[in-house]
Design a protein around this nucleic acid. Structure first.
Length: 435
DNA sequence: TTTTAGTCAATAAC
DNA sequence: GTTATTGACTAAAA
């Protein structure tokens, strides 16, 4: 299969660079691919629905392409020329990609061609519009992504490499419209106009937003799957919690004081704000996660402003595992983010020191643990232009002597911050929350 | 058991 | 109608 991939359609689709015929060692897929089927089979529901989605898409795809998709692998759209390789294998084999450049390019193409995120997400990435929006606006650097997290970027890269990508998506858009008119329109209109004040339609169990999305045939199948269950239990859908600005403000203040609050503190917060404990817990989880991502963006932008390839710059976000280089925790000098350094500091205050330390150190195995062939033919197989693939340029980030002094400075800065935070953490036990 | 990563989906904002 | 935001959830890692 590897051979097929090397010599077959992928080669054509991904515009290999001339003269790049280095061998690829089997080690790559063997060491990097964590039992290709397993991650997906564990998410059975998701797979099921995505398989449904594929089937539905098959009706609006060219048959030749549809037949390429891997059984058991949720490929919302058969990857152009993947020649039988599963997406997991492709992800495992992928060289380091510049996620920032990829998303930038995708946004550009979508905007230029008036293609929506929903269409793109559902047909190319197998993700919902919201996820696509998030992904395009806040891409994480490659080395911070898990294999699963890398998948959409590989899909995007492959899509960008497909010379007929826009054309195909346009076709889908047109067909989708027809499909909506011919298949979905009556029910869609009926539900849409009959559900004012009944966002959770008893008839279908779908909200207004769902209905809008059901305009897509592929989505329809997913929802049809959910329908029976919801018909049986139409009232189970929980209303979305919307936190008031004051509540958010209070939570942010609490976060600034204690990014990892104890269960007791969470209880207190919940009772004082009249929220469910789980809501407060979720809020902290989400906030930490999103602050962390803001840091990545900042890091990328800082790197970009310094010139060069942003998402995996040596000494900034390079994946060699040194915290002083990954930027996430060491880059305390970065400025200009609206949420400011107060939120940022929380990321340094993980529940225990060892965990915090490990996080940085763990980057090494996570980045290099998926040691795959870099540059050369793999880049060419992915058809990656130099501006997008950073693998060859950043093979050993931070090893450059020029980066060494920067690293030392950052490390010193980091130690200083950790020290101050630990001191602060030691004296903050009894908290009075002021809202 | 807790935290993180990734995602969905409701809904706000444009 | 599209995109952005965000609370909730699942799976996996620590």
């Amino acid at each position: 299969r590897m051979q097929l991939w090397l010599n077959g359609e992928l080669g054509q689709a991904l515009l290999p660079m001339p003269g790049q015929t280095q061998e690829i060692t089997p080690k790559t897929s063997a060491s990097c691919s964590p039992a290709p089927e397993s991650p997906l089979s564990s998410a059975e529901e998701s797979v099921k629905s995505q398989q449904e989605e594929q089937m539905c898409q098959a009706s609006i795809q060219e048959p030749s392409e549809t037949s390429e998709s891997q059984p058991g692998t949720p490929l919302p759209l058969p990857l152009p020329g993947h020649a039988g390789l599963s997406i997991q294998e492709m992800v495992a084999m992928s060289p380091e990609l510049d996620t920032y450049a990829i998303t930038k390019k995708v946004k550009e193409v979508l905007t230029d061609n008036n293609l929506g995120q929903r269409l793109f997400g559902e047909s190319i990435l197998g993700l919902t519009q919201g996820s696509v929006s998030d992904l395009l606006a806040r891409p994480k650097p490659w080395h911070k992504l898990s294999l699963k997290g890398r998948e959409p970027f590989v899909r995007m890269q492959l899509w960008l490499n497909d010379p007929r990508n826009v054309e195909k998506l346009m076709d889908m858009k047109r067909m989708e419209k027809k499909a909506v008119l011919h298949m979905c329109f009556p029910a869609y209109m009926k539900r849409r106009h009959s559900s004012i004040g009944e966002s959770h339609s008893l008839e279908s169990g779908l909200s207004g937003s769902d209905l809008t999305q059901s305009a897509s045939p592929q989505n329809l199948s997913q929802q049809q799957q959910q329908q029976p269950q919801q018909q049986q239990q139409p009232h189970l859908k929980k209303p979305r919690v919307v936190l008031a600005p004051e509540e958010k403000e209070a939570l942010k203040r609490a976060y600034q004081q204690k990014p990892y609050p104890s269960p007791k503190t969470i209880e207190e917060l919940a009772s004082q704000l009249n929220l469910k404990t789980s809501t407060v817990i979720n809020w902290f989880h989400n906030y930490r996660s999103r602050i962390r991502r803001e840091l990545f963006i900042e890091e990328i932008q800082a790197a970009a402003s310094e010139g060069g390839s942003p998402s995996a710059r040596p000494g900034k976000s390079g994946g060699e595992g040194d915290n002083s280089c990954d930027g996430t925790e060491s880059d305390s000098t970065a400025e200009g983010r609206p949420s400011g350094s107060e939120e940022r500091k929380g990321l340094l205050e993980s529940p225990n020191r060892s965990q915090r330390d490990e996080e940085g150190e763990a980057e090494l195995p996570s980045a290099s643990g998926t040691s795959r062939p870099r540059g050369g033919i793999i880049d060419s197989l992915f058809g990656i232009p130099e501006s997008v693939s950073t693998a060859t340029a950043t093979a050993t980030p931070c090893r450059n002597p020029k980066d060494s002094s920067l690293r030392k400075k950052k490390a010193a800065n980091l130690n200083n911050i950790i020290h101050r935070l630990e001191k602060a953490a030691n004296r903050d036990e009894p908290h009075e929350w002021e809202f």
